[in-house]
Amino acid sequence: MYAVNYRSILVDGIRIAYREAGDSKAPSLLLLHGFPSAGHMFRDLIPLLSERFYLIAPDMPGFGQSDMPSPTTFKYSFENLARIIDGFLDAIHMRSYSMYVFDYGAPVGFRLALKHPESIQFIISQNGNAYEEGLNDSWSSLRSYWASPTDEYRESLRSAFSAEAIRSQYLQGVPDETFVSPDGSCLDSYYLTRPGAHEPQLDLFEDYGSNVALYPAFHEYFRTYNPPLLAVWGENDPHYLPAGAEAFRRDLSDVEVRFLDTGHFALETHSKEIADAIREFFGAEIKV
């Protein structure tokens, strides 16, 4: 097993923290986290894969250990998150890689693919949605909000930042809660209690509609470049439905779908199953 290095690098004046593990000559795998988490969500997965892959897990701006520039100087949009991650990949000279996308990681990762389609090798989507049918009815009030944003609704979204709300995100859809470590949700809560942490997240809630608007562009990229894709999906995710995993088949010919009996944060309960699925997806081990 390789040690994990905790590094950071400046991208456009923003310090981006990242975890790095594995041999840089092994297949590069970019791990893109979701809301309200950070690279720490991959803490169980990284040791399971570091013999086989070169792993890079950045914290996006406003998340985890990365800088959280003020919204007055940095616009918290998915376009901007993708732009900074793109600059980050340039800075660490990562120009040919596979990606693991989860939640927010999906619209960020697929934006990277639109910009540099030739760089993307394999895609692993773990509850990383790109289809309308992957969004359940609970998104309808958010959809109205995107259409006509109101301050009142924006304020109501702050409830998502309470420790209880975050913990419940981790537990929903998990058959046996004793498998869910408190570490992930507590860290997420900690980062969200930092002064000024809420506004960036509220801006991103408001901007999430830009992701849905880009779905047709993502599909066009899928059809044109046909990257092999593994959808490994917590099937009890209250936000992203299993139909969103199946939908990849519509635009891609090389798709493998695996459902896991767990929730949104599938890595909390199934890191081993997910690691095995990823290794199999790339083929057997390399002998040296």
């Binding site: 092994a26 297949p27 590069s28 596979s98 090798q121 394999f122 470049y225 990257p227 057997a284 390399i286």
Partner: peptide, 11 residues
């Protein structure tokens, strides 16, 4: 193609 996949390359 399999060899390249083992090495992490699909393109």
């Amino acid at each position: 193609v399999d060899v390249m996949a083992h090495l992490g390359f699909s393109r």
